[in-house]
Amino acid sequence: MAIQEGFIEVTGGKVWYQYHDSNSKKTPVIILHGGPGSSHYSLQGLRVLADERPVLFYDQLGCGKSDRPNDESLWTIDRFVEELGQIRKALSLDDMHILGHSWGTTLAAAYLLTIPEGVKSVIFSSPCLSAPLWAEDQERNRSLLPEDIQATLRECEQNGTTDSEEYQEATTEFNKRFVCRLDPFPEFLKQGAQYKNPVVYNIMWGPSEFHVTGNLKNFDCTARLNEIHIPALYTCGRYDEATPQSTEYFSKLTPKAKFHVFENSAHMPYIEEEAEFLKVIRAFLNSVE
């Protein structure tokens, strides 16, 4: 299998990409990672999909192996949508499937609503398609935490000390329940922290998964999901911060959508239930090919 790697010039700098070419005639799938400001790092296991079709990873500008320009005006959803179009053009991806995870689903939906040609299907993995609804879901999730943890979170948010060690420790308790339930937490994931850019995350999202203060806080495309007419698969974990209730709600607003819950996962079923995740993704992609 040929692996092509390099950089693509986009608005604001250079973006790193890696293309796994399986010499298959099947349509490539492009992976849109989460964040904002994370990287493809945690999703790299999806490269095994390249035994059936080409797989494209890239690190969005500002994180991973891509440039990290010090220009806060770049961190908007419209620029990331533009970036995706520039990557697609540079690599001549006339036809493709999209697999977005978490913030990657926000980006996927915003891109699809520009009505691009040649996108054959979309996978919304643990979707965030309404920041206000996400915030409501996290309020409910927070209420399930021990009372002392809830109190610490509230106090730090009210006092503006969300960069404190106690806030980070309380956030870790949330993450153990609703982000990744593997215990011990995989060393592999700890090593990926270096690829994240907290500046991008803070500007666009906020200090934590559940305290939304950034420029995405009013993002909500639910009223336009009926405009997505390509086959769509919505997935989430049973304990996901992208809750099964909201994920199913989004799927019902999308004309050609399927819905699947990974019963033993939180927000990272592609790691928590890797074999099952790959099986479901493969089946969907092959069914719409």
Results as ranks from 00 to 15, higher is better:
266 A>G: 02
81 V>Q: 00
4 Q>S: 15
212 V>G: 08
40 H>I: 13
157 E>Q: 10
89 K>D: 15
272 E>M: 00
98 I>H: 12
284 F>A: 09
269 P>S: 09
277 F>P: 01
7 F>I: 01
134 W>Q: 09
50 A>C: 12
186 P>M: 11
229 H>Q: 05
31 I>K: 00
89 K>V: 11
214 G>I: 06
115 I>G: 14
22 S>V: 10
15 V>P: 12
244 P>C: 04
67 D>T: 04
55 V>D: 04
223 A>G: 01
243 T>P: 11
222 T>D: 07
249 Y>V: 03
6 G>A: 11
127 P>L: 05
4 Q>D: 15
275 A>K: 09
4 Q>Y: 14
103 W>I: 00
42 S>C: 03
243 T>S: 06
176 K>L: 08
153 L>W: 10
171 T>K: 11
278 L>Q: 01
112 L>K: 05
196 K>R: 04
5 E>Q: 10
71 D>T: 12
238 R>L: 13
115 I>F: 14
260 H>G: 06
270 Y>G: 00
53 R>E: 03
19 Y>F: 07
185 F>M: 06
257 A>I: 00
170 A>C: 10
29 V>K: 02
238 R>W: 09
170 A>M: 12
267 H>C: 02
126 S>M: 10
165 E>P: 10
96 M>R: 03
215 N>R: 01
173 E>T: 11
16 W>T: 04
53 R>K: 06
255 P>C: 02
195 Y>M: 05
43 L>I: 00
8 I>F: 12
39 S>V: 12
88 R>G: 08
289 E>L: 08
78 D>Q: 12
268 M>H: 09
99 L>Y: 03
83 E>F: 13
215 N>A: 00
251 S>W: 01
206 G>F: 00
48 V>A: 03
62 G>T: 03
62 G>K: 05
254 T>G: 07
72 E>R: 06
103 W>P: 02
52 E>R: 13
229 H>M: 13
170 A>E: 08
67 D>V: 09
223 A>C: 08
49 L>C: 11
44 Q>I: 07
10 V>M: 10
95 D>F: 06
281 I>H: 00
281 I>T: 01
200 V>K: 04
205 W>D: 07
8 I>A: 07
62 G>M: 04
274 E>M: 07
56 L>P: 03
91 L>H: 11
157 E>W: 05
246 S>W: 04
119 V>E: 11
261 V>N: 04
94 D>R: 08
235 T>E: 07
112 L>I: 06
273 E>C: 06
136 E>R: 15
108 A>G: 09
262 F>A: 03
14 K>P: 15
87 I>H: 13
254 T>F: 09
72 E>N: 09
125 S>P: 02
81 V>E: 04
223 A>D: 10
133 L>F: 14
248 E>M: 13
74 L>Y: 10
240 D>S: 06
114 T>D: 12
229 H>T: 14
188 F>D: 03
185 F>I: 05
217 K>Y: 10
141 N>G: 07
284 F>D: 05
262 F>I: 06
189 L>K: 08
36 P>M: 02
16 W>F: 13
247 T>C: 10
71 D>S: 03
276 E>K: 10
231 P>R: 10
120 K>C: 14
161 T>C: 05
262 F>C: 07
228 I>R: 05
180 C>E: 05
32 L>R: 03
109 A>H: 11
69 P>T: 02
32 L>M: 01
180 C>Y: 13
23 N>M: 11
155 E>D: 13
195 Y>G: 00
259 F>W: 03
